[in-house]
Write a protein that binds this DNA or RNA. Structure first.
Lengths: 264, 264
DNA sequence: CCCGCTTTCAAACAATTGTTTTAAACAATC
DNA sequence: GATTGTTTAAAACAATTGTTTGAAAGCGGG
């Protein structure tokens, strides 16, 4: 046999030229095609063709189709972490210093929502939500690839958002109720990725890719702005309604808490 | 050739015995397997085996694998419509009579959210969100099957929800901003279907299917209650924040409106 | 009891899949 | 400039896919 596939671990500092170029192109193409069809639906030949590479190269560089899929999610996790990293760190520090007031929580949350939304709507080859689609597919039918993006990116984003929600409601970020509320809040954002086709039809927009990029840009920014408003309104409303936030003496906690363990 | 496949149109009143039984079993099994793997990922042999039917029967009854997939979505649409039909009609009538006050809008919305959530969490063979997963997959990568469930179910639910949001904010249910806000609101619900794995891990719950049905029941009801609260808080907050709701003199409308046409 | 129809079944088919193979082309070090 | 190791290329492979085939089995009415 010629050369065994280079173990699919992360490339330490090795940044040569020819091979890495091919790897990049393959990941790029794979990201696009895996987002349209899924893992089983995507054909290796199609990916190779889109990357202007030979079919054998995917086996050569990534060991297998799954290996390439894996690599795609490594990149997704890295990209997401890089985009959100600074904000997350800032929020964590402010939280540790007990310095998050209500108005600050609102502005931090709005910025986080906007950044996150713009990221998942932009970080892809086409104007389509490639990254978002890939993640959602893993959410509804997880494979080992989900661990990568969850542990390295989704989890911290979720936890950080929970810090802001908890700060505003003067509650514990680890409270199951706060976590559920945080999840719901992030859902307002995610739904524009997951239920893309519905909002497209409801707004009477042409099929994706069919409208001029400049217009698409503006639609995206419009939604981002409304998302900020929704987030602020949600917090304001929750505080006004004064629903139970501390789960300890609450029935809900008694339901979820005993199960709660192994939070890996 | 033996018998050509009976055209895959809806069986008018024909409700015989032997054949329809097989059809039902096939649809049941297909619903489950299509929700785990997707259209391409599911194997006809596996579906047939789960239905205790021969492989050829799927070609025989539905013409093809796609035909069966189609039939699955016909049922999904029917089920959803049947669950939501009464509430939708009631809301439409109240709206036509201009009888929706703010408190009424809140209670109608809460009931709608709860019913919808319970439906997508319950209407499946396992305790898993089979229906939800199938719909989400179609949202992120629509096939002709999406038309069925959108036109026959999703659209009316979305429009009806928009009526309630608009009523509370004293705005036009057709206002693009209201539609976007409605979409975000429904996203709070959908995220518990689409980002299932994330909320599971964040709550430290065991893998789905691994926890006793009684507990799962209570978790479901807990989330449903919080969703009601979130919806109420969202409306209250939006009214308090007094964001622009009428799009006419707004920049957003100038963005979206000129594209808006062909609302099929 | 036999005949028309529908339904079931096991086997076979043609097409496509991911992957391997084999060898040629390339780049760089000596 | 020959000889490394690395990368590409085309073809071949074994396995699996959705579907078809052709006949047997069930079932109802004459």
């Amino acid at each position: 046999m010629p050369t065994p596939s280079p173990s699919q671990a992360a490339p330490p500092p090795a940044e040569s030229n020819r091979g890495d170029r091919a790897r990049e192109r393959l990941i790029d193409a794979a990201m696009e095609i895996f987002s349209e069809r899924n893992l089983e639906g995507a054909r290796t030949r199609e990916i190779a063709a889109a990357a202007e590479q030979n079919v054998a190269s995917i086996s050569y560089y990534f060991g297998s189709k799954e290996g390439l899929y894996h690599a795609v999610f490594e990149r997704i996790a890295s990209d997401l972490r890089q985009t959100m990293g600074a904000q997350i760190k800032e929020i964590e520090q402010l939280h540790a210093a007990h310095a998050i007031t209500r108005p600050l929580a609102v502005s931090l949350l709005k910025r986080l929502m906007r950044t996150l939304y713009i990221h998942v709507r932009t970080k892809d080859s086409q104007g389509n939500g490639g990254v978002g689609r890939l993640i959602v597919r893993e959410q509804i039918a997880p494979t080992p690839a989900f661990d990568i993006v969850y542990e390295r990116a989704i989890r911290v984003v979720h936890e950080t958002t929970a810090i802001l929600v908890a700060a505003y409601l003067e509650a514990d970020p680890k409270d199951p109720i706060i976590i559920i509320r945080t999840h719901a809040l992030l859902g307002q954002l995610l739904v524009f990725v997951t239920a893309r086709e519905t909002i497209r039809r409801r707004l009477g927009l042409p099929p994706f890719g069919k409208l001029p990029p400049e217009t698409e840009h503006r639609v995206r920014d419009t939604i981002a702005r409304i998302l900020e408003e929704q987030a602020e309104a949600q917090l304001v409303g929750l505080a006004a309604c004064n629903f139970p936030t501390i789960a300890s003496p609450d029935a809900l906690h008694r339901v979820i808490s005993p199960i709660q363990q192994d939070p890996t």
